[in-house]
């Protein structure tokens, strides 16, 4: 199966690979997927508590090229976004941007879930109600 140029670019030069200090109050961590499914994504956001804006995002992903590209793209999008904006991220935006084939749509779903779990981790840590996660269609 051939990958799109954009997937290849993110795979070759992934953006925002790394680890934030998850013990910090202003860092939210999302860990989604499972090793036995062949995909695990860990996505982290660092939030400016004053403005509720994401100032940094990092990821590490165990998975195929599309999963790596999806998380690279998602972290890049998150930077500079308010938490509310970030919560509106839709997996289909990732599918479109990376031209993912149908068999790889689950990678984008995983990225969306990772973003939302990171936001919720931050919210819970800071005494806020978690946002409702929509049921993912592709599982």
């Amino acid at each position: 199966m051939a990958y799109s140029e954009k997937v290849l670019e993110h795979y070759e030069h992934p953006l925002n690979v790394g680890t934030l200090d998850k013990s910090k109050l202003n860092v939210g961590t999302g860990l989604v997927g499972a090793p036995e499914c062949g995909d695990v994504m860990r996505l982290q956001i660092e939030v400016d508590p004053e403005t509720q804006t994401i100032i940094d995002a990092k990821f590490k992903t165990f998975g195929c090229g599309s999963a790596i590209a999806s998380s690279s793209l998602a972290t890049e999008w998150l930077k500079g976004k308010s938490l509310d904006e970030a919560a509106t991220l839709d997996n289909m935006d990732i599918v479109e941007e990376l031209a993912l084939p149908p068999v790889k749509i689950h990678c984008s779903v995983l990225a969306e879930d990772a973003v939302k779990s990171a936001i919720n981790d931050y919210r819970i840590k800071n005494g806020m109600e978690p946002i409702q996660l929509k049921e993912s269609v592709v599982h």
């Binding site: 992934p14 690979v17 680890t19 860990l31 989604v32 997927g33 499972a34 090793p35 695990v40 994504m41 860990r42 990821f59 590490k60 992903t61 165990f62 790596i68």
Partner: peptide, 19 residues
């Protein structure tokens, strides 16, 4: 870039992590 490798290196037993 693998979160599992990082966990392994930190001495976390992956089988105990709730995925």
């Amino acid at each position: 870039i693998s979160p599992l490798w990082e966990m392994f290196k930190e001495g976390i037993d992956i089988s105990t992590v709730e995925f």
